[in-house]
């Protein structure tokens, strides 16, 4: 997983609430067996017309947002399925940070596991950032994870909260599995106490 430390980039405004995972990446694109290559299908149903051509009014098709690495979105972003294809698609497009008033739980967790920082900020603050984002490439936001601040184009710093453990993993690009395996002895001990009635799935 790529580290996330500090990022300065244009932000794209997606002023919609309840952007679900079917919107982020429709199910028909889930048939891949790889993690990469999903960026072109990100937001496919909003981004492309029925004939496959680009919908010029969709935010990420506007020249000033093609290089966006930050997304400012509405409430309950990422609701719906557990598909990790959603963060994979965002990442493959180049998005490393999503800012919203709230996120759906599973999506929120999936972001951290893929080097994307989801930031929760109050709705009025998100609106200000949405306005900043509306200025396109002229107005870059800076995200400083170490200091836990979003820096607005005018220099104002906005503090955000992040889980200490997840912050540590993101800053260092740490793989959860490696961390958990440090607890292998505890897992062995736990398994040794398995109740006798617990069946095994054998002999399918």
């Amino acid at each position: 997983m790529d580290k996330f430390t500090r990022l300065t980039a244009p932000a794209a405004p997606l002023n919609l609430a309840n952007v679900d995972t079917d919107k982020i990446i429709p199910a028909r694109f889930l048939k891949t067996i790889k993690r990469s290559g999903l960026g072109k299908s990100l937001f496919a149903d909003m981004r492309y017309n029925a004939d496959g051509s680009e919908n010029p009014s969709f935010v990420l098709n506007q020249p000033k947002y093609r290089q966006a690495q930050i997304l400012v979105a509405g409430d309950n972003f990422g609701c719906g399925s557990s598909r990790e294809h959603a963060p994979w698609a965002l990442l493959d497009f180049g998005i490393r940070c999503v800012i919203a008033p709230s996120f759906a739980d599973i999506f929120h967790g999936n972001c951290f596991k893929n080097g994307i920082l989801p930031i929760v900020l109050p709705a009025d603050v998100c609106e200000q950032l949405m306005d900043d984002a509306a200025q396109g490439t002229n107005a870059r936001l800076t995200i400083d994870l170490e200091k836990q601040v979003v820096v607005r184009p005018d220099g104002e710093e906005i503090h955000f909260e992040v889980d200490a453990f997840r912050k540590h993993c993101l800053l260092n690009g740490l793989d959860d599995i490696g961390l958990t395996l440090e607890h292998a002895a505890a897992i062995d001990a736990y398994e040794a106490k398995t109740p006798s009635w617990k069946p095994a799935i054998n002999g399918v």
Binding site: R83, E84, I106, G109, N114, D176, I177, A184
Partner: peptide, 12 residues
């Protein structure tokens, strides 16, 4: 769970 967690459970 997401796919990273699927891998995590398979491994641990």
């Amino acid at each position: 769970i997401g796919t990273s967690e699927v891998e995590h459970v398979l491994a641990t």
